[in-house]
Nucleic acid binder design. Sequence first.
DNA 1: GTCTATAAAGCGATAGAC
DNA 2: GTCTATCGCTTTATAGAC
Lengths: 204, 204
Amino acid sequence: MTDRRTEILTGAARVIARQGVRGLRVADLAAEAGVSTSLIYYHFKDRAGILRHALAFIGDRADRYTAAEAEAERGAEAAGGPSGPRQLLERTLLLEFQDLPEVRENSTAWGELRAHSVFDPELREELAAAGTAWAAEVAGRLAELCPAAPPGAVTAAAERLTALLEGLSVRWLSGLLPLTHARNLVREAIGVEASRLGSPLDVN
Amino acid sequence: MTDRRTEILTGAARVIARQGVRGLRVADLAAEAGVSTSLIYYHFKDRAGILRHALAFIGDRADRYTAAEAEAERGAEAAGGPSGPRQLLERTLLLEFQDLPEVRENSTAWGELRAHSVFDPELREELAAAGTAWAAEVAGRLAELCPAAPPGAVTAAAERLTALLEGLSVRWLSGLLPLTHARNLVREAIGVEASRLGSPLDVN
DNA sequence: GTCTATAAAGCGATAGAC
DNA sequence: GTCTATCGCTTTATAGAC
């Protein structure tokens, strides 16, 4: 966990969040991780290897955050908090819109990898897998919220919500959209989509 | 129009669409435009200057496409085609989802600049201006479609639609989402938002 | 305004000692 | 496994002729 490899990958996430994938310099990464450049080549062979492992590392970390949140959610529910399917979906979708250093760093790095995939086909497989898993999770929660909706419509709504998220995320991270505004737009989008899908809890 | 500066900027749009902002090499641009590297420095001072002017150039070009489309639209309307406010809005939003080299190139370059702005504050001013103008145009057409909707709700809906567009655009350009699927999601999103805003033409 | 030639710096990657 | 030192290619940017 705190071996050198992990330290280097943690540093890579930080550097990518700060300078972007194409702004990552091996020397910067070495300074960030407090090791020599040659140690990085020893562990990851070359720059492409660094990127591949960093991508997987960042993806895994996002999964862990998601899982931790789902756990916390179940806890809150057990404690009698206000946790209907609507709140569950909202929390899931708002996860990456938090101004915590960890979350912001992961969001930035992940968004960078997504943007970079337009020019680097090598990244697409990983992104596609993460993207479909994420869309399926959202679709599942939407289906809970709107049990009477046809599956095809739920899938499409989930695709729209996740794509909206990605668009808003870029705007937020580049300072074009305040965080609270972004969060409101997501909440409203859930309302709009759920209403169209015939949520029984609708009317707001 | 066909002076050297314009030729270089046209080449810059092509190179950025092919290799990304951070993949733009001055030597590549020189080859693309058929000039020497030093001529580029003569006209644009340094690499950042190239980027600044290329961004403005690409933005202007997108405006021209949009304006041309609006004109064509008015022509079709005069000719008695099926052009209600709904069709107008749809065409406006689907403009960048076309598999024509020009459009794809501009979309790719613009998306790249947007993504890059997360790491380069210098680009944000231009992006913010283009973004608000674009959102205002969409909001105007939405208001036409849903005359009874409160202005605040229309603005928010326009922000969601344009952000959705940007999210879908990245997915399309990176090959994660087929073009027709992206177009369908946009059309459905218009329907969902318009319905929520109380479009008189609703019910589909 | 435009070119050729080149300086200067940046950067990925390796060799070899410990 | 980890470091220091360095090689060699790439890339930005400038000098100076035309």
